[in-house]
Simulated assay, not measured.
Amino acid sequence: MITQERLQKVIAASGRYSRRQAEELIKQGKVIVDGKKITQLGSKVNPQQSRIVVCGRLIFNRAQKKYFLFHKPRQCMVTRDDPEGRKTIYDYLPQKMKNFKPVGRLDYDSEGLLLLTNDGELAQKLTHPQFHIEKIYEVKVVSKPHLRQLERLRTGFELDGRKTLPMKVDIIDENPKSTWLSMVLHEGRNRQIRRMCDKVGLTVKTLVRTQFGPFALKGIPYAKYKEVSLNLTPFVSRFIPRIRYEKAV
């Protein structure tokens, strides 16, 4: 059975445009499907077979969806351009990846796993609060945390007017001057780990994201990336991937 979807939805799923932007481009006659200009909203296409060109650029072909895992280095921004002139992730990536968008964020001083893709539908599901996608971090803090500090992190407390979700926190390694913690989040508020640690009196020295949903940082060198091929299967609002790792570059 051939599945037909609304053209604006298919364009938005590419990750390049929002649904509203897609609708405006269709009305302006800037969308070509299989060689034919489309100006009628509500037109339907087969996303697995149709060749869709927007503003002169081929933007969607389901077979062309790609996924890259990048080991984000410290002191770079997860954005295309920075008004302060700081390095961005795209300074470390080849030209062919300039149109792939990051899924989620890591702050300037943090490092670790970052997914980049042109699959807008997957990106939305991985970042939507209702799915509670698991993210694992290794965090180095100054000195040795007290039990009450760890318990506050685990049980949660009010942040930005809302209580944080319960979080798994374990000690990985410790010495008199510093402690490495493993922290498992199921939400993604702005600079959440740093702010939570600060609120309980812990100073973060290093923060590394080691896992994001089904994706892991292991095997990806610092500031390098891997392309992954995957087949996602829905299961209880999550995904069980079958992933083949390509050579790191």
Rank of each mutant, 00 (worst) to 15 (best):
Q4W: 12
E5A: 08
E5P: 00
V10E: 02
A12L: 08
A13F: 06
S14E: 06
G15L: 03
Q21H: 03
E24V: 13
E24Y: 04
E24H: 09
L25N: 02
L25C: 01
G29K: 06
K30M: 05
K30G: 01
K30W: 01
I32C: 10
G35Q: 04
G35T: 03
G35C: 07
K37T: 14
I38W: 02
Q40P: 02
L41V: 04
N46T: 13
P47G: 09
P47H: 08
Q49W: 02
Q49Y: 06
S50Y: 01
I52F: 10
N61Q: 15
R62V: 11
R62F: 01
A63S: 15
A63Q: 15
Q64H: 14
Q64S: 13
K66N: 10
F70V: 03
F70C: 00
R74A: 09
M77F: 06
M77K: 08
V78N: 04
V78Q: 01
R80D: 04
P83K: 09
E84L: 15
R86W: 05
K87E: 07
K87G: 04
D91W: 05
K96V: 03
K96P: 00
K98L: 12
N99L: 15
P102W: 04
G104R: 00
G104K: 00
G104N: 09
R105E: 02
L106T: 07
S110Q: 10
G112H: 08
G112E: 03
L113R: 03
L114Q: 01
L116R: 02
N118Y: 05
D119I: 08
L122I: 15
A123G: 10
Q124T: 13
K125L: 15
L126Y: 04
P129I: 10
Q130I: 13
Y137I: 09
Y137E: 06
E138N: 13
E138Q: 15
K140C: 10
V141C: 09
V141L: 06
S143H: 14
S143T: 13
S143R: 14
K144C: 11
R148N: 14
Q149N: 07
L150H: 05
L150V: 05
L153K: 05
L159M: 14
L159T: 03
D160F: 04
G161H: 02
R162W: 03
K163F: 05
K163I: 07
M167H: 01
V169D: 02
D170H: 05
D173K: 13
P176M: 07
S178K: 08
S178T: 11
T179N: 04
W180E: 03
L181F: 11
M183C: 10
E187C: 12
N190D: 02
R194V: 02
R194T: 07
C197G: 10
C197N: 13
L202K: 11
T203M: 14
T206G: 00
L207N: 11
L207M: 12
V208C: 08
R209N: 08
T210K: 14
P214R: 11
A216S: 12
L217W: 08
L217H: 08
G219W: 12
I220P: 01
Y225H: 07
Y225R: 07
S229K: 10
N231G: 09
N231H: 09
L232F: 11
T233E: 14
P234I: 09
R244G: 00
E246H: 13
E246C: 07
K247N: 12
K247V: 08
A248L: 06
A248C: 13
V249W: 04
V249D: 13
